[in-house]
């Protein structure tokens, strides 16, 4: 099962921070997973939402599988 993580406002809006999800057979890429999750959590699909697969920031698209940890993150702000 893939491990899905949400942070900041995304986690608060969704009401969860971490979920284990058996990926449906047709979800093989980050963009497909993003669209799938955005059905119930619209903000995950927002252009400003960044994604990291196995703690690596993904700029374009990437394959995802049941072994992966996928994090969705709203705009970052440190300092």
């Amino acid at each position: 099962m893939a491990r899905i993580l949400l942070f900041g406002k995304l986690a608060e809006t969704a009401g969860w921070r971490e979920r284990h999800l058996a990926l449906p057979a047709d979800i093989k890429t980050l963009s497909a997973l993003r669209a799938y999750l955005a059905d119930s959590h619209q903000e995950i699909g927002a252009a400003s939402t960044r994604a990291a697969v196995n703690k690596r920031l993904v700029h374009g698209d990437d394959p995802v599988s049941d072994d992966d940890e996928v994090a969705f993150m709203p705009p970052m702000s440190g300092g």
């Binding site: 608060e12 709203p74 440190g78 300092g79």
Partner: peptide, 30 residues
């Protein structure tokens, strides 16, 4: 480094106060 921490460091800020809570996003100035 401060300019990059402000906009690229993975932190998410929420202010809590007497009037409730709000999430802070990077300002256009940042």
């Amino acid at each position: 480094l401060m300019d990059y921490l402000k906009t690229e460091a993975p932190f998410w800020k929420k202010e809590e106060g007497p009037d409730g809570a709000r999430w802070i996003e990077p300002r256009s100035q940042d």
